[in-house]
Simulated assay, not measured.
Amino acid sequence: MCVNDRPSPETAPAAEAGRLVRAARSGDREAFGRLVESHQRAVTRLAYRLLGDPDDADGAAQDTFIKAWATLGEFRHECPFGAWLARIAVNQCRDRLKRKKVVVAEGRLRTRMDGRGVSPLEMAVDSSPGPEARAIGREIGRKIAELIRVLPGMQREVFALRYYDDRSLAEIAALCRVSVGTVKTHLFRATQRIGRSMEALYGHRLPIP
């Protein structure tokens, strides 16, 4: 099962990507290089959202493409190439988290409100530009990062994919190779855990759905 590839200006059209994959599978390194160029930014961005460190993200992205080159024969064309890469990237990030205990760092947590993306941080503090509001925002941001660090592995991963990468529940399930119900369970537990901690600290929960 594969998630849908997300079109972007950087991603080669499906037909061209298919041609490049076929050429790369025949040993054409230049064709594979073009695939790397098309997807490198998206893969690195996903890795950063899972690892929270730019150097680790760059390393995970590099490992992703090395793994992709080595296992290109396993790729099936019914699955979008970008989705196949995303799955490899998630697995590479998991390995790094296990080895180094790297945790998700502070970032912009997304939710939906009135049809636009609004972070819980923006919703929790005064939107005025005064120094006091900015100081409160930084404090809450640091606390959120600390709470994410102590989430169990699957909860942290699901939470990051949902609120950092804005993935749907079905996409997360496909990437993590679990059921949508399992994703919902881990996401609920993560948001409840963070919500309770924030309520204890600030007297109210962040409005994370």
Rank of each mutant, 00 (worst) to 15 (best):
A57W: 04
V43I: 13
V125E: 08
Q62M: 12
A105H: 12
E122I: 04
G33F: 04
A60H: 03
R108A: 14
A86Y: 00
D56H: 10
A89H: 03
D114G: 05
R76W: 03
E30V: 15
D63H: 01
H77A: 14
R94H: 13
E74M: 07
K98P: 02
D28C: 11
P129W: 10
K100W: 15
E37R: 11
H39D: 08
G115M: 14
T11K: 10
R22V: 04
V36E: 04
V21W: 06
A42V: 00
H77F: 12
V102I: 10
K67P: 00
P9D: 06
H39R: 09
E10D: 15
S128K: 15
R99K: 15
A86S: 11
I88C: 03
R96H: 09
K67Y: 03
L50D: 01
V21P: 03
V102D: 04
P9R: 04
G107L: 12
F65R: 00
Y48P: 01
L35H: 05
P9E: 08
G27I: 11
E78T: 04
I88P: 00
R110E: 14
A24M: 05
L20E: 05
R19T: 11
D126Q: 09
A89K: 03
V125I: 04
V102R: 13
E78D: 13
K67L: 05
K67W: 04
V103W: 09
K101N: 07
G52L: 02
S119Y: 07
R45F: 02
R110D: 12
R94P: 03
A89D: 04
M113P: 06
R41Q: 09
F81L: 02
D56G: 12
T111S: 14
L20D: 02
D55K: 10
Q62L: 14
F75S: 10
C93P: 05
F65Q: 01
R108T: 11
D114C: 06
T44P: 00
A68N: 03
A24K: 04
L51I: 06
R41Y: 05
T11S: 11
Q62D: 11
T71N: 14
D53H: 02
R41E: 07
R49Y: 05
Q92P: 04
S26W: 06
E74P: 01
P54A: 10
F65M: 01
P9H: 07
C93N: 10
M123Q: 14
Y48E: 08
V90T: 09
V125W: 02
P13R: 13
A89G: 06
A68Q: 08
V103K: 13
A83M: 13
A17C: 09
R94F: 14
E122M: 08
F32S: 05
D55T: 11
A12L: 11
G52W: 03
V90I: 10
A68I: 00
S119I: 02
P9M: 11
Q92G: 05
W84I: 00
A24L: 06
G52V: 01
P120F: 01
W69M: 09
F32N: 07
